[in-house]
Design a protein around this nucleic acid. Structure first.
Lengths: 149, 149
DNA sequence: CTGTTTTTAATGCAATTGCATTGAGATTGA
DNA sequence: TCAATCTCAATGCAATTGCATTAAAAACAG
């Protein structure tokens, strides 16, 4: 038996539409800043940052995947490209030959750092300037609810 | 002269991170529902919906672009694919041979309708279930601020 | 143990997206 | 008027993403 799905409320539909639009808009603006400064995309940054935070600058691909929500095959190839640029290196995972550890290089750390100065300025311009700290807190709380489960 | 960019506040950084993550999560969940029901992606839906809302089911590519925030060249090719599937048709724009009108077909309207039943159920499940109507209102207001300018 | 299932990462190939440019047609301004 | 500029949409080609599968190794079950 299948209940007829009730329509989502107008306020939920409006909120969802704006969430999509706001995300696209802000990501677009930030990506444009990064690109015009000659940097790679946010995806690269995300991986670099996660690695830098990880113990000794190392994480397994699975852990990165989970942290940044990329598909396994996309991450695999992104790591290829990053490795080719000397930003990360693959090293064996002790005790499990299926796995591997991805380690950020000094060059990778340096890039993350340089990107952050541009990224931070963009966040200031496109987010901090638009929301009070209190509103940012509200937003965090709402997003957390959406992610739940 | 260049001011040293001050760090974004911790609450803003947290909010931004969660916004990205929430958007990816929810879009991912919704796309999975659509796909498993045999439907095309949200991008197709977005275009169909905009067209259906437009006067006589017609909009120029520019208008669609503006509404859904796609790149010009991506929309151009998406419309190729949709036209090939018989969901839209291109018709001349009266009085300006550069432009064109994209018109949704009956088949396009039917698809939008069928997709909506799945989409609506997904919104209920992944958004309405997580936010009260009041929270949805807050979210709308916050997103509006982000989009501004 | 040994065969089966699960986990992890890579890859061939198709589809989509990004970038740069083009071509056609309007619009502008001297 | 007409050359220069701008707007609109398409397209060749490169890069990225998605899908399905594979290979290798580990975990598991009898």
């Amino acid at each position: 038996m299948q209940e007829p799905p009730s329509e989502p409320s107008a306020s939920v539909i409006r909120a969802w539409g704006r969430l999509i639009r706001a995300e696209r808009t802000v990501v677009g603006r930030i990506e444009a800043e990064l690109k015009s400064a000659g940097f790679p995309s946010l995806h690269w940054y995300d991986v670099l940052l996660e690695l830098k935070r990880g113990p000794e600058g190392r994480l397994t691909p699975r852990e990165i995947e989970e942290a940044v929500l990329f598909e396994q095959y996309n991450l695999s190839r992104l790591l290829d490209r990053m490795e080719k640029e000397g930003l990360v290196r693959r090293i064996p995972f002790p005790g499990d030959k299926r796995r591997q550890l991805i380690e950020i290089t000094e060059e990778g750390k340096a890039l993350q750092w340089r990107m952050w100065s541009v990224y931070a300025a963009a966040i200031n311009r496109f987010i901090s300037a638009k929301l009070t700290d209190n509103e940012a807190g509200q937003l965090s709380a709402l997003m957390l609810k959406l992610i739940q489960e």
